[in-house]
Design a protein around this nucleic acid. Structure first.
Lengths: 110, 110
DNA sequence: TGGTTGGTTCACGTATAGTCGAACCATGAA
DNA sequence: TTCATGGTTCGACTATACGTGAACCAACCA
């Protein structure tokens, strides 16, 4: 567990990205990240167990949706906006716009 | 089995649509439909069984991605482009553009 | 009427996603 | 060194997705 595996920009695949996005919990994460915050694992999903949270972060990371980097004891995540926009122009924006419209995927969270 | 159940435009949900799109077989279907063709079930997926094909058509239909209408003995499918563009502007275009770039999801088909 | 064609539905098996607790690892602090 | 914190990994379980063949249905045709 020394550092994270991220697909390169050119390795991003549309079906992997769609797969990563096709989950309400992961969409919540993406929505939060889109605000520009750097999120940690535990503070973002207090309603699921640490192992479940870790699973979802991994799917997003390996799908190429976000970067993970260790900062001391915590792990900070940021959206790979440039890479996603470069490879799939408009995709992220359209999904984020849809998330703004429907409040269904944005329960009250700290 | 008298006619098909389609979600209304306002009932389209981003996670259902992403879920429907997050599958290579269904992406192949969407790509074909985007060409403007009206596709039947069997001619589009000759490499999977009729029941499997029917399953994928159903996921796309119930996710709101396409219209199905009976025309005599066959069922014709068309992309719900207007509805998708209205509810999730840019989503379909970005996915289709990605499908054009990578030939990986477009095996030789009749 | 009976047969054929195009699809669906059902029942089933298999594979994978999602979830969790327990154990473990990495980091920083005492 | 020892401890606490933040995450991951592992093993197990459950739920759902995927895939199939068999049976069925709906429309057309002879």
């Amino acid at each position: 567990m020394k550092g994270f595996v991220h697909p390169g920009r050119e390795d991003l695949r549309i079906d992997s990205v769609l797969e990563a996005l096709a989950n309400p919990i992961r969409l919540r994460i993406v929505k939060r990240l889109a605000g520009g915050e750097e999120l940690t694992c535990s503070t973002t999903l207090p309603d699921v167990s640490p192992s479940t949270a870790s699973h979802h972060w991994r799917v997003l990371r390996e799908g190429g949706v976000l970067w993970a980097r260790r900062e001391g004891r915590i792990i900070l995540h940021t959206l790979r906006r440039e890479d996603l926009d470069a490879r799939f122009p408009g995709l992220l924006d359209s999904v984020l716009a849809a998330l703004d419209d429907s409040g269904s995927l944005t329960p009250a969270l700290p």
